[in-house]
Every structure is written in C-alpha cells, then in structure tokens.
Nucleic acid binder design. Structure first.
Lengths: 425, 425
DNA sequence: ACAGTTTCCCGTAAATGC
DNA sequence: TGCATTTACGGGAAACTG
C-alpha cells in the first residue's frame, strides 16, 4: 500500500531548530501519461513512531500542497517552504530519567499523497532521513555531532535507535570526515601534521598511529581531560572562529593552528628570537593565541604565549592588524612588537601585510581640527605589560627584545610606571 | 452601565513590543460586605475603537482571571502576567498613505467584569492609559518620545488622537521632563550649564533664553540640522550609553558630557596643556569623546578631540581604563598619554583612579610559562598615531607632550615607522 | 528606488523542571 | 541542589510592501 515511488531530497540527517523556518522538496518519480490528476502532498512529523520511542513530540506548521511539473525535468514536484516545528506542550517536556539527550533523539518528516487513477487509489508515502530537533542555537554543535556520527557509521535510511548504542568509528574514517568538514566550512583542508595533532588530542599522544577506534563518547559525549568541553565542541568552535574572523589568513596558510604545545616547543626552540606561530587555544573554546621565541637569560630561547584572543577582540579588528599592532610595553621604554618572523622565517609584514586594514586611517600630521577631519583617529591595539628581567648590556644579541630605559632621568617614567608590573595587585 | 469603580494601574502611556510579555494589575475599589461573589475579569485590546481610527489591530493572548483578596489591603485585585500582543494579520500591515507613524498610534487595554449581586448584574469596565505598540526594539526610542510628549502635555486619560495635532511644549516644562528622565535613567540630574547646552541644541544658540516653545517635530520628528537623527534620539542614545557603560564615572560627575564645541573651546583655551574634558558626541549616536589641550606652535593652546568611543570599545573595557591607557604613539618615541588634568585641574588618576580595573591583571615578571599562569596577559588599549610637527627644544615648556626620539640611532625606528603618519594612505 | 515597518533569528541570559 | 533543556528577548540584518 505504501509506495516508494515518491521521495524527498536525499540528504543525511539535519538539525532543525524549533520555531525556525526550513524547507524540503518532494518529487514523484513515476511518469504517468494522464495529465488530469492532481497530487496533494501533506506532511507529518514523527508519523507512526511509537509513543515510548520519543521523549518529545512536535507539530509541523504548514499546509498540504499540490505537486507541479518542474520546468527543468518535467517531474512532478513540490517544495515546502516555511515549514516550522512547534513544541505543542505548554511547559517544556523534560527528559525521562535514563533516556538519551535531545540532540541524540532522531525524528523523521513524512510526506504523504493519494494517487487516484481510473477509480483506483494508491497511498504514496516517503520520509526524510533522521532529523535532530533543537530548541536553542547553543545545541547546534551537539546536533551536528550526531549528524556526523550517523552519516559516518550507517547507511540506513532510518534507524531512529542509532544512538542507543552508537558504533565506533575508525580514525581513518573519522579524520576524513573531519577534514571534509574543515574544508567545507573554512575552504582549506588540514595537513598531515594538523590531522596528527587532532589524532593525538582525541586518542592521546601515546596511541598507536595505526587505525584506532574512536567511540561516540570520546568524540562528543565526554569532556577532554581537564576541560569543560568535548573534542567536537572544541573543533567546532575553531571552525566557527575561522569562518567568522580568520578566513583570509587561514586560506593563506598563515595559521598553523592545530599544534600541540610539545610540538610547538620542538618547532620553535632552535629558531631565531622573534619567530612566532599561531595556534588555536586548547583551553578556551574559539580562541587563538600566538607563541613567540624570546631570548633566555643565557642565550637559550624561551617561549611566550599570549592569552588567547576570542571573538570579543577579533570582532573589533582583523587578526592581521592585531598581529601587526601587538606591543610589549615596559617601564620607560619604546613599545616593541616581539613578533618578527612567522615560522619558519617569513617576515611578519610579508606574511600578513596584504591583510592589514589599519593603514587606511590617517594619522594626525600638523593639521588643526577642522571640518573635514574633526577627530583624532583612534585604534585599539593589544599590549602586554612587560618587566624585563635584565637590562641588556650594549651589544646584546637581541637588542630589539628588551629596550633599555630611554634615559635614567626620563621624565616619562610616570607613565610607564602605571603600566609596569610592580604596581599591580 | 459602565462603572468607574474598577481601575487599572495609574500609569501613563507605555510602550509594548509585540510578542513580549507584559503585566498589569486591576483592582476593585468598592468594599462589598458579601463574601460569596466572584469577579472574573477579562481583557480586550482596543475595545470599541472605530475601524478607521487604527491602522493596526492586535489581539491579546491571555485568559480571564478571577479577582482575589490582596493580603496587604484587603482589596479585590488581580494581576495579569504574561499578557502578550500578537499581530493577527498574516503579512505586516502597512501604513495607509498620510496616516501617522506606528509609534504615534495610541492604543488601549480594556478590562471588563460582571458583578452579580442579589439578582442584579452590573458591568464593570476600566481601561489603561494610551499605549504605543512596536514590533522591534529599534522603535523603542520613538515610542518613549510619544510617551513623554503625551505625559507632558495632556492630563487626559485617553486621547487617542493626540498625535494628529500634537501641542507645543514650553522649554520650561520640557527641560524639567528631560532632567527627570536623565535622573531616573542614570541616577544624576543635569547642571544648569548642561541643560543650557540642550536648550541651545534644540532651539539654536541664538534663541532667547526665555521660555521658548518646542514643537513635536523639533523634539523628535525632524532630524537635527545636518544629522541623521532627531534631538530625542540623540539624547536617548546618550542615556543608554551612560546606563550601560558610564554609570560610575557619570555619578561621580567626571563627565561634563553636554558641552558644545564652542563652550568647550572657551573652557579649555586658557588651561594648562594636558587639561581635558569628556563630551558626548554630537555627530554619532551613543558616542563619547575626550578633548584635550595641546600646546600650539607658538605656545598657544590647541584642542584635539578623539574619534568618539561607542559600545564596541566600551563593552570591552571600562571607560576609566580607556582614559588611563590612551596613548599617542609617535615614531621612535615613548608613547604618551596626553590626558593629564580633568577640567578644571584634577589629576587624571585622582579623578578616575578608583574606577580602574586593569590593575588586577599581573604583568609578566621573570617567570617562564608555567601551569599556574600559562599565558602572557593582554589588554586592548586605544592609541592614536601622532606625528609631532616639531621636535621640542630642550627646556620646552611642555616636555611631556612631544617625546624626542629615544636616540637618533635608535634600533626601534622600524617599529615606530609602521605606526607613523607617512606610511598611511 | 525608497522608507517605514515587520520578520527573522543568533546568541546570551534567565527560567524551568526533574 | 545541579543539570539539561527551554524560554525570553535584545539587537542586527534582511525582507517586505506599498
């Protein structure tokens, strides 16, 4: 009685937010010679799913629609636009104890029609692949995690109980999927080294580099050791960061990004002071930091990493400008940008120069205030207070790194003093 | 038949946003000895308003409620919580040509009940003062403008046609109302000088300082000369700015704020270089700038005003910190904060010191990166590029204002050069 | 094209219920 | 009490419609 000759868009499970519009297209696959029949298609959400299989029920707001001939291919088809799910309960329904979380609850959207030809009526029906329903956009990463895991590990059209016992993924499969996600979201895939960092983060640095198995909890259910977020939450936050704030320099390959601290040390320890690289924060969601080589007391290199930048700063200035403008400010000294060479040895302005935007504003020259440009322009720049641990002797190997006081009798120390370490509580 | 013995909260017109909850309380003013009667109150929006008097119709979502004895005073009363207005039309209804804008359209909320005693039924009814209905929070300032004008200029309970020909306000009335608004919103009233600045802004500097009449268009319908916003929009944006970002220093009286550029010049022209004051931007909504005295070429003072700060920067750092951290950055010189004395002569840190928060972070001292504090702390500070027009001779009267290069052979000029005026397009 | 108005919906904060 | 989940809604942007 139910015929498979009607189908909805062949897409893997999607995430739908309650109250937000979404769309779907349904096609009729048979070509019938008769021209005088109409196919009215109606939608139902979670049709025929037993009561006890779902914690939450939703209703779908839209009306039945009639199929029309598509100009492109002559097929009968209909597109439902502005569908939207509503929670029919007055109060939010809470999870029964022991049941799966909402972002692992899989739903389906069914399409039905009745074909009547020569007195014979046939019921047609098709349904979507599984859907995840969320109520707040903060649940989106979890929803996508479910989508990825489902797509990766099953070819079933509709296995609503997939997450009652989710299978393992092999690292091979998973890394390919992650790389695909990265590429789709940010326009650039990962290098072998970057993927290796993800491997170690997920499986531990001592795991075999053969084809380990990754469990669903490791991927998204459990938090990373000592962190308040899962592996996928972390990776997703970085993709969002790149998409919104770092796209240009990410595409250029200026961001090494996925580097462990150990590897960072290995890479930088023998490099010139002033060599730096960009690394995604492993402690804060959606953060990026830079690490640079500073000369140590006895000539051996030391590394400094800046407190990670997140969207609050990145939404004000492009990261390239921030890199350019960053300064260490010491008592009574000329501020100094410690970022000289992007690893391995590209001069900072060569790597990032084409992305600088701040050169567009004019500085005050000798003009008094006038109507054409009544204000002194202002930038926000990031700085770090810096207390040199030693005043370098003349001829110091890295004279640019620690600025001596301008003069022992400098009238400007008052200003520096307010920024130096001793005044801080 | 309609009895005035039931009344709703005695409040002047309010602004209600479609789809957002609001509440109202209704009291029954008669004390009847009988205890066995119930008063069920129901609500209606825009009851009995003729079709052609309103461009928009709304429905109110809530159910009738029964009045209850209030413990405090023994009155019968009922509070409607979670009322909410919905636009019943499928598509947004647009203004008929020539009709008044939505924020001048006045509505009412009616409450009805039926009192049945000894076989006698009496219909009770009361209604709210006029209400303004908006659909987006960006309309809130316009809504409040209407509310203010209505409150100021009529004592009528319900004159829905008030804005078809709104009366004038005298400056006396209006300034009192504005001052009340300021005080209610920010916790501090205006000085005579500040009110005078508002007077001149609204009426022009050449208006008599007697009791001028202010029209509704002057107050909110027309834009200020050469500006894309009205007087009230401007003032409201400043109140929001104070409420959200400047509360502490506004309460302290550190913000002169409402100062015309002419008055600013008169106040500052004979003051010590480094004297500064804070002024609300007249060109940008919700902006604040500071103006400081810089020594002129022949010893005569010149004024500089910084590009106004708005919420994008103020939401990152308290304004007191911004004032403290502001620096002029010149090629090869130690950065300099030109803000020395808050007008008339209060040292900067004395005026703002108690509001500084940035001293809470520690600077890097001599510690290498470790687990307890793995990152170099970072601040965002505002800077302006600065090209001194002259290198001051030794013994210059204002040695702090223009820093000579640290040394003619400074190795640091490369850095300064990237920030100096010549490189800018 | 345009302006006034509404709709859409992210993202933060608060509320809610188990 | 804590946690998972939903609700609330400001505010920016897009869409709508005469």
């Amino acid at each position: 009685e139910k015929q498979p000759c009607m189908h909805s868009q062949p897409q893997k499970p999607l995430v739908i937010k309650v109250g937000v519009h979404f769309a779907a297209k349904v096609r009729f696959l048979l070509r019938l010679p008769e021209v005088d029949y109409q196919l009215k298609v109606k939608t139902t959400f979670d049709k025929d799913i037993p009561e006890d299989m779902l914690n939450r029920r939703f209703v779908i707001t839209n009306n039945p629609k009639v199929m029309d001939v598509e100009p492109v291919n002559g097929c009968l088809a209909v597109e439902f636009r502005h569908m939207q799910l509503k929670d029919p309960s007055t109060n939010g329904v809470r999870n029964a104890e022991g049941s799966i979380p909402v972002t692992e609850e899989l739903h389906t959207l069914s399409f039905e029609a009745q074909l009547c030809l020569q007195g014979l009526c046939i019921n047609l029906e098709t349904c979507s692949l599984p859907l995840v329903v969320i109520s707040n956009s903060c649940q989106l990463p979890s929803g996508w995690a479910s989508v990825m895991w489902y797509n990766l590990l099953t070819d079933e059209q509709r296995n609503l109980e997939f997450f009652t016992d989710p299978p393992y993924a092999s690292w091979c499969q998973l890394s390919e999927a992650l790389n695909w996600q990265l590429n789709a979201n940010t326009g650039r895939s990962l290098s072998v080294e970057q993927l290796e960092m993800l491997h170690d983060k997920l499986l531990g640095p001592h795991a075999l580099h053969g084809d380990c198995q990754v469990s669903w909890p490791m991927f998204h259910k459990d938090n990373l050791p000592g962190k308040p977020f899962s592996f996928w939450e972390w990776l997703d936050s970085i993709m969002e960061l790149i998409k919104k704030y770092l796209h240009a320099i990410w595409i250029d390959g200026c961001i090494m990004g996925f580097v462990s601290k150990d590897r960072e040390l290995a890479l930088l320890k023998d490099k010139e002071p002033g060599t730096f690289l960009l690394r995604f924060s492993e402690s804060h969601l959606g953060g990026i930091t830079f690490t640079w080589v500073e000369p140590g007391q006895n000539g051996e290199a030391k590394l400094n990493s800046i407190e990670p930048f997140t969207k609050s700063i990145l939404s004000m200035r492009p990261f390239a400008d921030i890199i350019h403008d960053y300064k260490l400010v010491a008592d009574g000294a000329i501020p100094e940008n410690p970022l000289k060479l992007l690893y391995p040895d590209i001069p900072r302005d060569k790597a990032f120069g084409i992305h600088y935007t701040h050169l567009q504003k004019k500085g005050k020259t000798c003009l008094p205030l006038n109507r054409a440009f009544p204000y002194v322009p202002v930038y926000v720049i990031p700085i770090s207070p810096w207390q040199p641990y030693t005043v370098p002797a003349p001829g110091n190997r890295y004279p640019w790194m620690f600025n001596p006081p301008c003069s022992p009798f400098s009238p400007f120390t008052e200003l520096g003093a307010l920024l130096n370490a001793e005044n801080w509580e």
